Amino acid sequence: MTGPQPCQGAAKVAVRDQLLTGRRRRSLSEVGAAARAIADHLLTAPEIRRAATVAAYVSVGAEPGTTALLDDLVAAGKRVLLPLLLPDNDLDWATYHGPTSLAPARRGLLEPVGAGLGLDAVATADVVLLPGLAVSRAGLRLGRGGGSYDRALARVPVGTFTCVLLYDDEVLPDVPVEPHDRPVTAAATPGGVLRFR
């Protein structure tokens, strides 16, 4: 049988609702402190230190913040790629040159103003940092449900360091998954970097 299983889809919706409610309850100071701690952990991680190109994203709302992290990566001499959301929810990629190179886009996102490099540009990254709502201890990521990052991860070569940015309590024993869900190799939280394999 192909396609998502109804019970898993319903379970995902329920878990997503709980996690989003939890995020909305976080204070601005908690979000800011988490962003700084995550950035500090990632900047000292050997995978990031060795990387020439890092694919990342601009956080929105109560997601663990990425603003300082993006600027720290550029200051460290890294080439930073950020996603451009396409009408079909797939992701093109463009180079980040600092906060003045971002412009408002659909769905309340900020995106780089440069030309898109193509869907496969993410495959050139040594490290891929991505958003999520939770991850299991086996590295199975629960996203928001659009499938954008599952498609992007399918283009990333095996062995690439792929890391979801989360709060400590969003690393769960298990999360509902479907056949198209792609695992990640690590999670970065305020408590540190957890590697799954």
Rank of each mutant, 00 (worst) to 15 (best):
A56Y: 08
D90H: 12
L194Q: 13
P179G: 00
L165A: 02
L19C: 04
A56Q: 10
G9M: 12
L102R: 11
G191P: 10
T2G: 13
F196G: 04
V58M: 12
L70S: 06
G147P: 04
D71I: 00
S29E: 15
A56K: 10
T67F: 12
L102F: 04
L84M: 09
A52L: 13
P183F: 02
S148L: 07
G22C: 07
G118C: 05
P157Q: 07
E178A: 12
A51H: 01
P87Y: 12
D88V: 02
L20D: 01
L142M: 11
D120W: 07
A187C: 05
T124F: 00
P4I: 03
V15A: 14
Q8W: 09
A62G: 08
A35R: 10
V54A: 05
P157M: 05
Q5W: 10
T95R: 13
V135A: 14
G32T: 13
G118D: 05
K12L: 02
P157A: 07
C163Y: 09
L91W: 06
A154Q: 13
M1T: 12
P99N: 10
G191Y: 06
G98W: 08
A10P: 00
R16E: 03
G114L: 02
P6M: 02
A45K: 02
L142N: 03
V177S: 14
A37C: 01
G191E: 08
R107V: 13
G9D: 13
F196W: 01
H180A: 12
W93F: 07
A14C: 04
R49V: 14
A62H: 13
T124C: 03
T124R: 14
V156E: 04
T124Y: 02
V58T: 12
D150W: 10
A154S: 13
R197C: 13
A62K: 13
R151T: 01
T162P: 02
A76I: 01
R50Y: 06
G32L: 09
P99R: 15
A51N: 00
H180E: 12
V58S: 11
R23K: 06
A187K: 05
L110V: 09
D168C: 01
V175P: 01
C163H: 11
E170I: 03
L28G: 15
D126L: 04
A103C: 08
D181P: 04
K12Y: 02
A45Q: 12
G118A: 09
T2P: 14
D92M: 05
L153I: 04
S101R: 11
V80A: 09
R16D: 01
A52S: 14
P99A: 15
A35D: 09
G3W: 04
D181G: 00
A94Q: 03
S59L: 06
R24K: 14
P64C: 07
D181N: 00
Y57D: 07
Q8N: 12
D120C: 02
A94W: 04
L91D: 02
W93I: 03
D150H: 11
P179K: 03
A68Q: 15
P46C: 06
D174Q: 15
T95H: 06
V175F: 00
A94F: 07
A115F: 08
V175W: 07
L140E: 15
V13L: 14
L91Q: 02
G114N: 05
A52N: 12
V13E: 15
D150L: 09
